[in-house]
Design a protein around this nucleic acid. Structure first.
Lengths: 195, 195
DNA sequence: TTTTAGCTTGAGCAATCGCTCAAAATCAAC
DNA sequence: GTTGATTTTGAGCGATTGCTCAAGCTAAAA
């Protein structure tokens, strides 16, 4: 059975994901990637097919990771909304200086790929849609738990959450406004409850 | 005094701005630009110095244009909030299919330039800050006119507006959700008045 | 009409891009 | 130890990148 692959696909994809998230697809060269994941072109292209293929896998992994992170916050919280609140604070405040970017990689992707028929544009839409479904399920729970009244549907709450969360992350992608984050996140969740 | 320049700087910058806005800085090649603005490399580099120089001028022009557009809506409206409301609806709904991108060029720029010391990153921050000052002045007016109570400062209203507006534009940068735009914009302005 | 300062042109440079593939290295099976 | 299927390596290909500059062109000044 000959030789075995020497790299761990998971950790390689994670490293690539970090670099793509930070620099974007077009600004990341294959040589940047080679260094970041410590693989030579031949191995990369045999494993992922193309730069696009590696990016594709990276973005999917990013979505999974984000869901896993939310799950982790939910399991340590007394309610869905408290879990989401802790997650949002963690992303915007605590990981501000150690994250590849303040802006969600899905949002960056959706912003970068303009050509409506391109593979990566479609991918970014699909991942965003998938995440919206996930969020909707969470708000369904929140409604069933009585945390929220049902003046809005779960999907509408999910949409509102996404707009607020993306808006805030974009706003805090700059230096010297960190002290504003906490109150604005507080305001966001007050609004959700009062909708 | 020898020969005269044959291009109109304003319209050239506007054309470049459209292309940069659509494709982003890194995905736009100088040959794309040559075709779009109908100039040869020598002329471009003598007039703008570099691709970065042309982008820089394009982004500044974009900010000016956006302000001018808001001014135009304000002069046709009975109040600041009505003017802003019409502007937001125009940007998100009416120009959805004829605009280079659903996402604000300033936001795209802020998302694309990751390296904290790069010129274009600094530029995107400065332009965003400048726009926030402008918005704050508008909300100052709105407060003075009695359109808003002063439970928040003008700056806080401006921040809230930016978060909502960017969040919404990001959300509507995808097909088949157009019918949601109107009610969500309505909701945004209801929230502003109730803050 | 001639001069000449300055704009325009576009061939093409050096660097970098995404990617290929023949050769070397590796390790399970025998 | 030998074999042989499979992975890893990295020199380097053709294409494209941002950009330069000598030559040509244009029009105001003389």
């Amino acid at each position: 059975m000959a030789n075995k692959i020497k790299f761990e696909r998971e950790s390689v994809v994670r490293l690539a994901s970090q670099l793509f998230w930070q620099k974007g697809f077009h600004a990341t060269s294959t040589r940047d990637l080679q260094e970041a994941i410590n693989m030579r072109p031949g191995s990369i292209y045999s494993a992922f097919g193309s730069k696009e293929g590696l990016y594709s896998e990276s973005l999917k992994d990013y979505t999974l990771q984000m869901k896993a992170q939310i799950e982790s916050f939910l399991s340590n919280a007394d309610s869905v909304l408290e879990g989401l609140h802790a997650f949002v604070e963690h992303v915007i405040i605590e990981t501000k200086d150690c994250s590849p970017s303040a802006i969600c990689m899905l949002v960056k992707a959706n912003s970068e790929f303009a050509e409506k028929d391109a593979n990566l544009y479609e991918l970014s839409l699909n991942q965003a849609a998938e995440f919206e479904v996930y969020l909707t399920q969470l708000f369904e729970q929140a409604i069933n738990n009585g945390e929220l009244n049902s003046s809005l549907t779960a999907l509408e709450y999910a949409r509102f959450f996404q707009v607020q969360f993306t808006g805030l992350r974009g706003y805090f992608n700059r230096p010297d406004v960190t002290q504003l984050a906490q109150p604005m996140i507080e305001q966001m969740f007050l609004l959700i409850k009062k909708l």
